[in-house]
Each structure stands twice: as C-alpha cells, then as structure tokens.
Design a protein around this nucleic acid. Structure first.
Length: 511
RNA sequence: GCAGUGAUAUUCAAGCGGACAAAGAAGCCAGGCUUUCAACCUGGUCCUCAUAAUGAGGUUCACGGGUUCGAAUCCCGUUCACUGCACCA
C-alpha cells in the first residue's frame, strides 16, 4: 500500500459548520485507518470574503473535536505553504503551461460585457454559457490576434484566464461512493482559472494544490460533484494523475428539505456550529456544541453516524473505535437529516460512559458558577463525588447537574407551587411536625437506617407513604423529583434536614 | 431551464435475487422498577382478525412497466426531492 494523504480545505469565510467538521472527520478517519496523513489547507483565494478569526476558529474547532491535522497550516509539513494566498507563484507557473499548450486562454471581457451577453441570450430564451459555442463571439486570445493580445496585456488591461473545455466529449469518472459518473463536456463552461486580481479560483488552486501536496484521496461534500468533471479535465490538461474522489452526502435540515444552514440552528434553537461564534460584523452570536455542554466524543460520534454507518447495530463509538470501523463503503449516497434530539441522545450515552471522577471535573465549574465560591477544596470535591453517585444517571449535560443537585448545596428557595398545592394537605402540618420529632431521635444518620426507622414510624402511625414522603421531599428539595430521598437526607445531614423541614413548616403554614 | 445525484416504514438506517412485513437505533405508546421525576428494564409500533403467547389473512420498500419459478434487491420509463450552473469556495 502506498502512502495515503487526505486533506481538509476550508475557506476562512466564517465559522466552520458541522457539515465541514463532518467532512474533516471522515477525512481524518480514513487517514488514520490507513496510517496516512491528514492535512489542513486554507483556501483563501477570495480575499473579499475573508472573515477575521475564522482560521483560528477552524483550528480550535478541529482541536476540540479531536480531529488534529498531521500537517498543514499551523501544523508544519514539507508541502507548504498551506495557505493558498501564499502560493500564488505556484499557480502562475502551472497556468503558464496551460497557456503555452493552448489549453487555456486570456479573456478580456468585462463583467459588464458578460452581463450584457447573458441578458441578450435570456431575451432569446437561451442561457449564456462561455464555451465552445460562444467563445468565438467574445473578446479573448482566441479571437484576437497575437499582437492585439500582447498590446492589451502591455496596456495593463484587466483580464482573466479561462480553461478551454474540450468540445463534446464524455468524461467518465469514478466516485468512491457513487460509482461511475458521466458528464458531457458540452454542459461545462470555460471556467475562469485566474481572476483579474491575479489569484486563482477554487478550481485551479484546488487541483494544483492537491497534486503538489500529493493528495491521494479527495473527500468532500456532495455540492462539489457537479464540478468533478472540470477537475478531471484539469488533471488531464496538466498531465497529472488525478486522486481518487469521494463525495459525501449532504447534511439536511431537520425538516429534510435542503442543506442544513446556520438559519436552521437559529430557528430551531440547536447548535449548528462546533464552537460558539460571534460575527465580527453584525455581532450576531451563534451557538456552539461545545458551549451547549456537548462532549467532543459525543459530537464526533453523532457526526460520524450522519451519512455513515458501520453496517452493524452498534452506535456508540470512541474516536479510536471509529477509526477501526470506518470505511467509505459504509457511507450513504443519500442525504442525512440532522436530528437535534438524536444528538442529545449521543451526548447522554457518552456522558454516562464517564467515571464519576471525570464527571467531577465537568461539574465543579457548574457549581462554582452557581454558588460563586471555590470548588477546589477537598471537602467539596468529596461531597460532590457522593452527590454525583446519586444523580449521575439523570445527567445529559454537565449543566444539568444543577437542576438535579442544587438542593445538595443550598436549601430550596422556593417550592414548586403546583406540586405544593397538591401535597399540602390539612394534616400535612401535623405529620411533618411529628416527623421532625421522630427524626431528631435518630442517632445513626445513615440512609438505610433512616429508611427503616421512618418506614416503621409511618406504619405505626398508619400514615400512607405518599402523605409523608412527598411533602418531605418538597420540603427538602422544593420539588417532587430527584434522587433517593433517604440518601439525600444522609448527605445533607441531620441538622440541615431538620432545618429545612422546619423552614417549610413555617413558610407553608404560618403565612 | 440545463446538468448531476438521490428515493426502504414518523426519523436515521440495514438490506446487494429466495430464509423480507423487511435488522438495529431514535421517537411514540403500554407495562415494570421507584415515595417521586428521570434513567433503566420488558413489550408494542403497515392494515384487519385473534392472543398471555406462538398465529391467520391483506397491502408494502416513490410510481408505472418489464425480466424471473421468485424482486426492496436486476432492466426501462415516469415522478418527486435535493445539489450545482459567478472573476465564491
């Protein structure tokens, strides 16, 4: 097996959305599975669309997700520079070759002239395409004499360089996911290779870089499939061996109609970006999976199963397991709908896989944020570890800890009115007063013992369990949900337990 | 409009000529466990009948035609959806 090199080539025009991360992930998985290299290349040939901060965002997002490049922009390597704006002379040399061989040509048409052409065609009910049928009508080095061309160039007339698409040929291509794809060259137009600002377009830069960087497999989104033929033709024109191609299915909106977009996230209230992002221009803030509390392992697991499946019924994978199991043959042809609910499910599964010690580190910041004090002390760590044992199984996000465990740290400030109304019965006062007295007598403050004693007490007095235990829970936690009541009592301690019941008695019946 | 790609139950999906009413998961429903809420466990989830359960029949894999003893799987056509069609990537 030869070397295996893949690349992820985003353009820095804003935050990377999950479709991009998923492309990066599949590239990464394939590289790792084959002991190859995963390369990060920045495609910034459109300086107009450059958004400051996006390169850093891309790098940070990949690092967070654990999709770390082996080489590329910011990671070094022997094939640099890894940013297209720094490779201008490389592209120039390559285009020079095409020009000399007559495979590309200068075009001097202004944007206005092109627009006029389009209009004219439209009036005739046709669509204008700059190709074999029309290039003889335009102002370019194929229609102009050599002298005129040189003159225009010397005058500094703006020009672009276009690729001369061969006429009426069927290009046969192999896609690793879709099989054979055929396109007739007549449906292609003479794409601009070099823009009037001297920078290459995506198509040129992409092909040149992939070749020079010795990329063996190009794995990218399905939106690129229509330009695959152009790329093939370009490789052919250069006389280069093209890499293998695989076009990944699109990630669809939760409704199933169309590509998932940033707007869908805003509308649906779920993240579409790995990391939070504030648009430097509009100040608009976009949610990130990381800030929502998603674990990176849950995030990549969810992404991996978006458009790929192992062919078994297994769904939960770590990165290493994904690397082992991943194969392009398991990639679907059709688009996969993004389901925010399923994303949560992955998160829950992975969170439950964590040990209590690992969870502790995730949960301490939550406590700190809520209570505003240090959470580094041994006492609070030990205590929280015990709390975690009781509430772990109900957590999906670290932040959930507080909704399930706040009452381990502070007495309830208010009581859920709906629940209270239902369980505050006339005899509740009397019952709770008796309970307080009874609990005071318990010396060995351990959950099983409290349970045993209190059960005996309830039976003796012929109370029902619900009538005693429900109000007691409300008094201690403010609501009717939570972990085992007796475990809780043990943890918060006898004094605190009694204090809370007395407080409840006061608030409920004296006001 | 042109080109490309796709279509399996609510969703994600398995399926690659017979063992397919079609795995698995999510969701939903019911039950169990709980003092409670989650989690968890069990069962159900095309239609009809029957049932504690094994079951019987009908209609399915976008639609319409084939090929075949036999089709979700192969062939042809149609429809619908999506993607692309810039001096953006």
């Amino acid at each position: 097996m030869g070397k295996f090199r893949v690349r992820f080539a985003p353009s820095p025009t804003g935050p990377l959305h999950i479709g991009g991360v998923r492309t990066a992930l599949f590239n990464y998985l394939l590289a790792k599975k084959n002991n190859g290299q995963f390369i990060l290349r920045i495609e910034d040939t459109d300086q107009k669309r450059f958004v400051p901060g996006s390169i850093e965002y891309i790098q940070e997002a990949l690092e967070w997700a654990g999709i770390v490049p082996d080489e590329g922009f910011g990671y070094g390597g022997d094939y640099g520079p890894y940013k297209q704006s720094e490779r201008k002379d490389l592209y120039e040399q390559c285009v020079e070759q095409l020009l000399e061989e007559g495979k590309a040509y200068y075009a001097f048409d202004t944007p206005e002239e092109l627009e006029a052409m389009r209009q004219q065609f439209q009036q005739e009910g046709k669509t204008f395409q700059y190709d074999a049928s029309t290039r003889s009508l335009m102002k370019n080095s194929l229609t102009l004499s050599e002298n005129e061309v040189t003159k225009l160039l010397e005058q500094g007339q703006p020009y672009v360089i276009r690729f001369k698409i061969p006429e009426n040929r069927t290009v046969k291509m192999q896609d690793l996911i879709r099989g054979e794809v055929e396109v007739n060259t007549n449906t292609l137009d003479d794409k601009v290779l070099v823009k009037s600002d001297g920078l290459p377009t995506y198509h040129l830069a992409n092909v040149v870089d992939d070749h020079l960087m010795e990329i063996t497999h190009v794995i990218r989104g399905e939106e690129w499939l229509p330009s695959l033929a152009l790329h093939h033709l370009l490789y052919e024109a250069f006389g280069w061996q093209p890499p293998k191609f695989a076009h990944l299915p699109l990630i669809l909106k939760p409704t199933g109609k169309g590509k998932l977009s940033k707007r869908d996230g805003i509308k649906g209230g779920f993240p579409v970006f790995p990391l939070e992002w504030t648009d430097p221009q509009t100040d608009e803030k976009l949610e990130g999976f990381r800030e929502e509390g998603y674990l990176p392992e849950a995030f990549i697991n969810m992404l991996a199963l978006l458009g790929w499946n192992p062919g078994t019924d297994r769904e939960i994978f770590t990165m290493n397991e994904l690397i082992k199991a991943f194969d392009l043959s398991g990639v679907n042809k059709s688009g996969a709908r993004f389901d925010p609910e399923k994303a949560k499910w992955f998160q829950q599964q992975h969170l439950q896989l964590k040990s209590e010690e690992e969870l502790l580190e995730l949960v301490l910041p939550v406590i700190r944020k809520q209570l505003g004090f240090h959470t580094d002390g041994k006492a609070i760590r030990d205590y929280t570890l015990k709390v975690l044992k009781l509430v772990k199984e109900r957590l999906v996000f670290p932040a959930d800890f507080w909704t399930w465990a706040s009452f381990f740290y502070q007495a309830p400030e208010e009581y859920n009115p709906k629940v209270l109304k239902k369980h505050k019965k006339p005899q509740t006062k009397e019952i709770l007063e008796k309970v307080v007295k009874f609990l005071q007598g318990i010396e060995d403050w351990k959950a099983p013992f409290i349970k045993e004693q209190l059960s005996g007490f309830i039976e003796e007095n012929q109370f029902s369990f619900g009538k005693v235990l429900q109000p007691l829970r409300i008094a201690l936690t403010g609501d009717l949900k939570g972990p085992d009541l007796f475990e809780m009592m043990e943890l918060i301690g006898k004094d605190e337990t009694l204090k809370r019941i007395e407080k409840a008695l006061k608030v409920w019946f004296e006001e």
